[in-house]
Design a protein around this nucleic acid. Structure first.
Length: 421
DNA sequence: TCTGGGGTCCTAGGACCC
DNA sequence: TCTGGGGTCCTAGGACCC
């Protein structure tokens, strides 16, 4: 018996989600845009074929979209998260050990000596996911996570399920993979490798460890070992609590006034605090940052940031908003066009084991925490912002642009799919 | 006019301790 | 020529991921 790692990866995930609810775009080019309809973050295979690049700004491809009748969507994260949960639930029914690696990927651990049986099992799973959710997936199987990723690449190009064995075929398979496509090799390292004459994954796999350490860090040495079939990156089955929480978002249009910034910053803090409570954490540090448009030709880019430590940790939206507001007032400068605000919560600890400080008003903290429980419960049942702080604004004219968003088909009764007979 | 957001891990270097 | 030595903790910044 020997262990294998399987990587189940949804194909063009966001574009595939949109297709599930609109069969008329099944074989047509589809793209999904980032927040504020900024740039392309997902493309169907047809869209890839006509040369639309990942990360390309929307305004630069508008013409080609019209010419090629590309169907364009704003991102609809509520829908994608729900579809992801459905796919992951099916995977978890099949395998005991599942690491949900991202919204569209999961690693599974399988113990089996027969590659043929594995292949058959994954083909069955793939068909089931497609039938039950409408989402096509690819599966890569090998001895390590890094190799499973490479196998997934091959799977996408042909049958959908591919097993990369670590036998004598491995060097040949690795030679076909550009070094920059290896999981863990980013742009910087790719450039360094090219300068040293290393172009493919095979060359990387036979690199001397000391030499590798001089180019990168210990993570690079792990990648090299993984390419040889030696597992160094463990599967993480129990997602641990996040150690920092970020909410940062560009505005639909620039903000000039402190009043509007107060609304935006308070709204972002509310979001961050919701994430904080959902994992049972409290934070002891809050950072607020503002930035102007970094692409502006007229104005130089400006970034203001300030961090404040709290006397004792908290998960209360109102406490965080009150600190956040005073930070905002201290970094705000008049006369600038702000394009983005960022909130970072750090110094996270479990709320259950929180240490109270001598100056804490315990009865008021207890009251506040029941208030937060009610707030979260209502918003979870009846939708985000059913109950919200007045300071987060009513009109919210800075809110992000999502002009081409599809309906929340699966999470909102008012937007459920309608079928005409 | 228009260019995403949210994470993790690792290392170097400073502060501080005995 | 010849600094004491050996630790831990924290933070900023770089690199990478989807």
């Amino acid at each position: 018996m020997s262990k294998y790692v399987g990587l189940i990866d949804c194909n063009n995930f966001y574009a595939s989600c949109e297709r599930v609810f609109d069969p008329s775009i099944q074989h047509k080019p589809v793209v999904v845009l980032s927040n504020n309809d900024g740039c392309v973050i997902a493309r169907s295979s047809e869209a890839k074929k006509i040369g639309i690049k990942m990360g390309e700004p929307f305004f630069k491809c508008k013409d080609i979209f019209i010419k090629q009748s590309v169907k364009v969507f704003s991102s609809n994260y509520t829908l994608y998260a729900d579809m992801s949960n459905r796919v992951m639930a099916i995977i978890k029914e099949h395998f005991e050990d599942v690491e949900v690696y991202s919204i569209d990927e999961a690693f599974v651990c399988v113990e089996d000596s027969s590659v043929e049986r594995l292949h058959k099992e994954f083909v069955h799973l793939r068909n089931k996911i497609l039938k039950w959710t409408g989402i096509p997936v690819s599966v890569g199987i090998s001895k390590t996570k890094t190799l499973a990723k490479l196998a997934g690449r091959v799977a996408k190009k042909n049958t959908g399920v591919y097993c990369l064995s670590t036998s004598e075929d491995l060097p040949k398979a690795l030679k076909d993979v550009p070094v920059g496509s290896v999981w863990g090799i980013g742009r910087r390292l790719e450039k360094k490798f090219h300068q040293k004459g290393i172009y493919n994954a095979y060359q990387l796999s036979v690199l001397d460890h000391k030499f590798a350490k001089s180019l990168g860090t210990v993570t690079l040495v792990r990648t090299i070992l993984e390419l040889k079939g030696v597992p160094c990156i463990n599967l993480d089955f129990l997602p641990s609590a996040k150690r920092q929480i970020t909410t940062s978002r560009a505005f639909g249009s620039s903000i000039h006034t402190l009043e509007s910034l107060r609304e935006a910053v308070s709204t972002y803090i509310s979001r961050a605090a919701e994430k904080l409570r959902s994992q049972g954490s409290s934070c002891s540090t809050i950072t607020v940052a503002l930035s102007t448009n970094r692409f502006s030709q007229k104005e130089s880019y400006k970034f203001f940031v300030k961090t404040q430590s709290l006397i004792s940790s908290t998960d209360s939206t109102s406490r965080l908003i009150s600190v956040g507001k005073s930070i905002l007032e201290s970094i705000f400068k008049k006369g600038l066009a702000y394009k983005k605000a960022h909130i970072f919560l750090s110094g996270l600890e479990s709320s259950a084991s929180k240490q109270y400080s001598l100056v804490d008003n315990v009865p008021s903290i207890v009251r506040e925490s029941s208030l937060m429980r009610v707030l979260d419960k209502l918003n979870n049942s009846y939708g985000r912002d059913t109950l919200k702080y007045a300071v987060t604004g009513i009109s919210r004219d800075w809110i992000m642009k999502r002009e081409k968003k599809s309906q929340s088909y699966t999470t909102n009764w008012n937007e459920i799919l309608t079928i005409q007979l």
